[in-house]
């Protein structure tokens, strides 16, 4: 299959991927870079388990052609903790407030929340719910996830 060479910034480091032209960003992250935090929950952009941040916006990486990432900055769940491993306040809040249960949706959920809080540090509950409307979760009923994002926003002030 025809391959494509794509250069972009991944979690702060410049990288180049040589992958089949049909690959999505998700497939490239998981297979080429072995960053398996983003998950394929549906493969058609409905569930949000594959959410990563591209140039500041949360995207469904399963629908995002990898060649579109050329020259852009991609951040995944593996890249949001501090260099010394200190968890990001959203990660901590999810652990403290039981925003994570089975954890499968968690990477995507946290990345959606991070994109939101980076753009809107003081979101209302409805902003949070709208923002994660595309991130499905079967375990939590979303209650403690929304609360965790609110907690994180307060901590990040």
């Amino acid at each position: 299959m025809k391959k494509v060479s794509v250069s972009f910034t991944l979690n702060g480091y410049p990288v180049t991927a040589e992958v089949p032209v049909t690959w999505s960003l998700l497939k490239t992250l998981r297979e080429d870079f072995e960053l398996t935090g983003a998950k394929e929950g549906c493969g058609v952009g409905e569930c949000g388990a594959c959410t990563v941040i591209v140039d500041g916006d949360a995207v469904n990486s399963c629908l995002y052609p990898v060649f579109e990432a050329e020259g852009k900055s991609v951040m995944t769940i593996e890249g949001i903790a501090g260099e010394d491993g200190t968890l990001h306040p959203i990660q901590t809040a999810f652990l403290e407030n039981n925003g994570v249960q089975c954890g499968y949706c968690t990477s995507g959920m946290i990345m959606s929340a991070k994109a939101l809080l980076d753009q809107n540090p003081d979101p209302a509950e409805n902003d949070i719910r709208t923002n994660i409307a595309g991130n499905f979760c079967r375990c939590t009923g979303y209650v403690q996830i929304v609360e965790a994002i609110e907690m994180a926003a307060r901590k990040m002030e």
């Binding site: 398996t36 994570v100 946290i110």
Partner: peptide
């Protein structure tokens, strides 16, 4: 008590069957 023992689930390190 927070779910700190499951911190791998918030950092992408937890290994599911997919991974």
């Amino acid at each position: 008590i927070p779910r700190t023992i499951e911190a791998d689930k918030v950092t992408g390190k937890a290994v599911y069957i997919d991974d």
